[in-house]
Nucleic acid binder design. Structure first.
Lengths: 194, 194
DNA sequence: GATTGACTATATCAGTTCGATATATGATAG
DNA sequence: CTATCATATATCGAACTGATATAGTCAATC
């Protein structure tokens, strides 16, 4: 899925600026399973405007750069919905430097291994909290997809958020149960070698 | 972590061709947490050769293109180990078209929602089986990092593989427990709307 | 017996995306 | 009083993906 499609999806929840769209991928609704950088979002919005799939209203601000508030055109909404029906979803991909590095645990000092595991756990801890779909208040200003007028999150979003939390929790549980075992194994391994 | 570093890591387990390195990221040891395509691996190996971090032996084959079998130089190994100590690992990133699409479950026919969930489950099922670190036989030809001379996987690899399986299993469990609930909610939602 | 698809193997390239940087300013913290 | 962070847009080089080309073997399907 290219960034253009992701932007259309982000705008399904209402109007937003490019900056706010990035936040949806950085902190918000989509943060734990999609990524898009500003360097791709702005060009995507420009292209979508040219193609008539989105429009924007320019809001002048005092002592600030103008804000371009984008929203879907009917054609844009239709296009997104069609894409949803027609796209064969690409394979999921998970990329983790930490896990890659941990593969080489025997080659590094045990303190580093432990630090990497702790960092991994900390990040997942944070993510698990951030995902909570009831957490509307924090991002109240940003109208994101996934909440109706009453602020109640919709079924699809709840499911996806729940799945994200389940994955985080499983990760944390595994670490709690296996970290000490690994460190001990590594100590034995190093003792045998020398 | 750039592809050059990933290639150095892949070669820590012994010699390999570019094609075999890709397999480690596609099917093998690193498949569930790192990705690298042929289009980046071959240029990376060329660059690493120029920098003296790897060398290759060219094996002529009958009725086949020549095989370049790469291996680390002492300098390459030193460089990789140094990188391991000095690199601040980048944030993990997980990218899933299916989860993105499921966010918009209300906007699509329930059959599609169900098909997406089933596909998601099937992929994770497959992955969970593939990860098993005892599964050396399948990739016996490819000498991958993570197994010693006796074929016993090393502690770091086991930990990472176990973590991957825990995540897959948690995903499958969540789907089993929540799929029907979601579909029912969606049916109610659609009934209310019309 | 012929075509199709899968596997081994290297290589290139257009198009997409990331990450860093530039610009401008207010607010908050140290 | 000086960083640093947040808002907001924009650009660009470097990196990477995904597709394609080449070229042969092998198994299966029709």
């Amino acid at each position: 899925m290219d960034v253009r499609t992701l932007c259309l999806g982000a705008l399904m929840g209402g109007e937003a600026t490019g900056y706010e769209i990035r936040k949806m991928f950085e902190d918000g609704t989509f943060s734990h399973f999609q990524i898009a950088s500003l360097g791709s979002i702005y060009p995507a919005l420009t292209k979508l405007t040219q193609d008539g799939l989105v429009t924007f209203v320019e809001h002048e601000q005092e002592n600030r750069p103008d804000k371009k508030i984008y929203h879907l055109t009917p054609d844009g909404k239709r296009t997104f919905l069609r894409t949803l029906l027609q796209t064969r979803p690409a394979e999921d991909r998970y990329r983790s430097d930490i896990l890659f590095m941990l593969t080489f645990a025997e080659e590094m000092p045990i303190e580093l291994t432990e630090a990497l595991i702790d960092e991994f756990a900390a990040r997942h801890q944070m993510m698990s909290q951030q995902i909570d779909p009831e957490n509307t208040d924090k991002h109240a200003s940003t109208s994101t997809y996934g909440h109706d007028e009453n602020g109640k999150p919709n079924p699809g979003c709840c499911f996806v958020a729940g799945l994200g939390q389940a994955m985080c929790d499983a990760t944390l549980k595994f670490i709690k149960e296996n970290k000490q075992g690994l460190l001990e194994e590594l100590r034995n391994f190093k003792a045998n070698k020398s």
